[in-house]
Simulated assay, not measured.
Amino acid sequence: MTPVRSLARVMLSGILVVEGARSLAAPGRLAPAATPMTDRVAPLLRRAVPGVPTDTETLVRANGAVQFGAGLLLATGRLTRPAALVLAGTLVPGTIAEHPFWTDTDPALRVNNQLHFLKNLGLFGGLLLAAADTEGKPGLRWRAGQRLDHSQRWATRAVRTARRQARIAVRSAATARRFPG
């Protein structure tokens, strides 16, 4: 891993690790802003996973735990692509819940929320880039294509070899009929 990639991952994940730790330690500070979002998500969660706690503070804490864990994975260079994708997913509900600039009537608050929304949008873009980064190595799509090409070449060769052997067998049989014994 190059030093630039390592540094960029640490810098990208830093804010999410810190925010995740804060959400774990004090979910109450985010609960009022998160309540409208969690009220929409809670019924879906209850249907999908019966018995899971769906109160706002628990969901804020769970989101914080995921941000903290995935942020550490990204920062340390472990499972970077899945971690970046998970972090991008955790960023969406928080951004919508905490920075709904489209509902603000106060111009100063609206500008502040717009800036934070755009900052999070930039983080989201960076996380998508990190999720797509193969570190210069072939990605899964390329490797799968290579395997497919290899399999197709192998099958084509096998068919050619089988045809050639069939022709040889036919010639041998024809020769044996002409010159018995």
Rank of each mutant, 00 (worst) to 15 (best):
P3T: 14
R9C: 05
V10F: 04
L12H: 07
G14T: 10
V17Y: 03
G20F: 00
L24I: 09
L30W: 10
A31T: 06
P32K: 08
A33L: 08
A33V: 07
A34Y: 07
T35C: 02
P36W: 05
P36I: 04
M37Y: 05
D39I: 00
V41R: 00
L44V: 14
R46Q: 15
V49S: 05
D55A: 03
T58L: 03
A62Y: 04
N63A: 12
A65F: 05
Q67D: 11
G71H: 01
G71N: 04
L72S: 03
A75V: 02
G77N: 01
R78P: 02
R78E: 03
L79F: 12
L79G: 13
V86S: 01
L87V: 08
L91P: 03
L91T: 12
W102E: 05
V111R: 14
V111E: 15
N112T: 15
N113M: 11
N113V: 03
H116E: 14
K119Y: 11
K119D: 07
N120W: 01
L123M: 14
G125S: 12
A131V: 00
E135F: 07
P138Q: 12
L140E: 11
L140W: 10
A144R: 11
S151I: 02
S151D: 13
Q152M: 07
T156E: 09
R157D: 12
V159C: 00
T161N: 10
A162Y: 03
R164E: 15
A169V: 03
V170W: 09
V170H: 08
R171I: 09
A173K: 04
A176Q: 09
